[in-house]
Structure formats: C-alpha cells, structure tokens
Amino acid sequence: MRDDLRHALAGGAVLLADGGIGTELMRRGFRLGECPELWNRERPADVRAVHDAYAAAGAQLLTTDSFGGHPMRLALHGLDAACEELNRRAAELARGAAGDERWVIGSLGPCGRVLAPLGDADPDAVRAGFERQARALLAGGADLLLLETVTALDELAAAVAALRAAGGSFVGASFAFDLTRRGEIRTMMGVDVATAVRAAVAAGVDLVGANCGRRLGPAELAPVVRQLADESGLPVLVEPNAGTPEPTSGLHPLGPSVFAAHALELVAAGARIVGGCCGTTPEHVAALRAALGGGRDSRDAPRASDR
C-alpha cells in the first residue's frame, strides 16, 4: 500500500493523518526547553508510543518527530551536527510504527530565521539545511516530505528545491494561515491564500495544505481548504489545531467529537488528507476515524466521489 499514495489520492480516497506530536510528547514528560527531536535518540520508546497510539486510533499517515529538525533550529540546542542522526531516527521510529500499512510523513518545519535580504539568514545555508534534513528523513524511511507551517515564500522556494535535490519524489507544502484583525486570511509574513497557492504550484509541489494557524481552527478552515483545492488542482492536506488555546490555561478547547465534526466539513470542502496539529490527540484521531466511517485501510475509507 505504501507505494500508491499518489494513486490513492488520484483515486479519490480521503486519508486520515495523525494528530499533534509535540503536545503528545508533553503528555509523556517532555519539558520546556528540551529539544523535541532529541527524544528520537534519548526517548525513542516514548516517540514510538505516540506513533503507535495514532496508528491504533486509525491514522493512515504517521508524522515524524522532526518539525524542528532543520540544522538552524537544532543549532539553538547545540545539536546541528546531529541533524542527520536525529532526522533519520525520527523517520525510523515512525516507519517502525507504520509498517507497510501506513505512510510516513517526514515533517520539516521552518528554519526559524528570516532569509536575506529581508532577514539575516543566508538562503544557500537555509537550502542546504533543508537538503540535509530531507536526505536523513528519506534514509529513515519517510514516504513523503511535508513542509509544515510555511509562512514565507522565499523559504518555501528554497525548501522545495532542497527536498527535490535530496530525492523527495512526493513533496507537500502546508501553510500556517492566521485570521487577521481585518478579517483577512494571511500567513504571519502577509501572504494570502491565492499567493501561497501560486508560489507552491510554481515551486512544483505535489500537495498543498494548511496546518496550525492563529485564530483559524477547524471551524474556520473550510473556505481555505476550498480555495487551496480550487486554485492548486492538487490534493489538499489539512491539519488544524484543536482550536485556539485558552489564553490563561494554554489548553486547547476543542474535544474529539467537536473536532471530528468540523473535520468532516473540511473533507466536504475538498480536503484529501485530514489530521490534526497542536492539541489534537489519538482520541481526536479516533473520533475522526469513526466520523469518516470506520475502516482503517485506505480501501475502506470514504472516497471523494462517494460524498
């Protein structure tokens, strides 16, 4: 089944991805200030347990614990030299839980810096970092590479080129859109949905998506999904967070059943891979699995043509 992601998506399947990784690691004792990717070396059993929990909940795609695995991000923990090891281990752990029955999403978050000339990060170094990370994720067994919470188009172009150079045959770009105070939908860097889609298509991605985002939870993302689908002509992934966290408690407000109900609206809007981001849990994924109609095999999943 692993080899046919493109085929499955072309055939109209709706696939279920997993939920938040970082927030699940926190439930297992991840402490502020630690490097989440280091858990792939130091706490592999816990990382594996998170993947196993999502697999048991019915997720068909498991996401690696490598969001902050760009060497520039790892450098904040003095771990840039471990980029290859940590990303490879991240993919191996997800691969182990996925087996041959599920796909592994190699997760790549932003490098954390603003590229020159606007910022001070050398674009060549940013690109080279993404390539290192991508090679390691592929070596560890990732089936597709997903750029997550993309906000800047210069970084997107550099990253997609790097992922292709690393040998990524299926590359996705998922944007973090916010709802602005003027009611517009834009990334932190001011990029609207249409511009984001054009840039992603021009960069040659195989999939576009939206994940996380401020003031833009599962209840608000349907128009974004529709626009991503209409304007890209590509499969759309959506991984909302469990609502915007309560300012005082930091808790994500949306429970599994409410989340699943909204996620169905996102499927109706055209999402082909649906999962969760920060604050979503195996319970959210299980609720979504039930809402989507039970079966754990993609062959049993509802197809877009059946809607």
């Binding site: 603003v114 606007l118 105070r181 003027r182 834009r186 932190m188 860097m189 001011g190």
Partner: peptide
C-alpha cells in the same frame, strides 16, 4: 502592524 495592515516583512524593512 498592530492593525494587520502590514506584516512582518514590511516592519523588518
């Protein structure tokens, strides 16, 4: 910036 009329890139410039 506070009114979301401009974004991080404009403020950086």
């Amino acid at each position: 910036f506070r009114a979301d009329e401009i974004f991080v890139p404009e403020v950086l410039v």
